[in-house]
Amino acid sequence: MLQFPSPEWLAEFQDVVNASAEYADAAATWEGDLVFVYEKEPDKGVPADVYAWLDLWHGKCRDAAILDGPEDPRAVGAKFTITAPYSRWKSVMKKELDPVKAMMQGKLKVKGDLPTIVRYVRASNVLTDLTTQLDTQFVDEQ
């Protein structure tokens, strides 16, 4: 079982993304890196914001890393950033919260080129669905 959030979890997630035919199809023409920001919730074991960076290119994840913070050049230059408190991400990963509806409600804050995000909404849904395939131990459930 992999602790979320952690570099180990993210590395496994990269493998899951790269093994997904559905993601490869949905994101076949996607070009650009993405940062998921898991905002801190100290009472839930997340003492600082976590920046998970994914280099996504034509249906594959070429690289992934937990960044040092918002000043990391990869965070600064990311094409897309999706931000929410840790517990909200957890709800998405547990399928208690639909990511598309959450974006419309402003519960997931999206930054980046909106036309591209709308065009690839199926890809981002698949990406979110893939998080449920990992055997995840949430940091506040230990």
Binding site: M103, M104, Q105, G106, V110, D113, V118
Partner: peptide
């Protein structure tokens, strides 16, 4: 400060 669909629609039209 609007987020969600409001910001999405505004962003789409601004880009258009």
């Amino acid at each position: 400060e609007a987020a969600g669909l409001t910001a999405m629609l505004a962003g789409l039209i601004e880009a258009a």
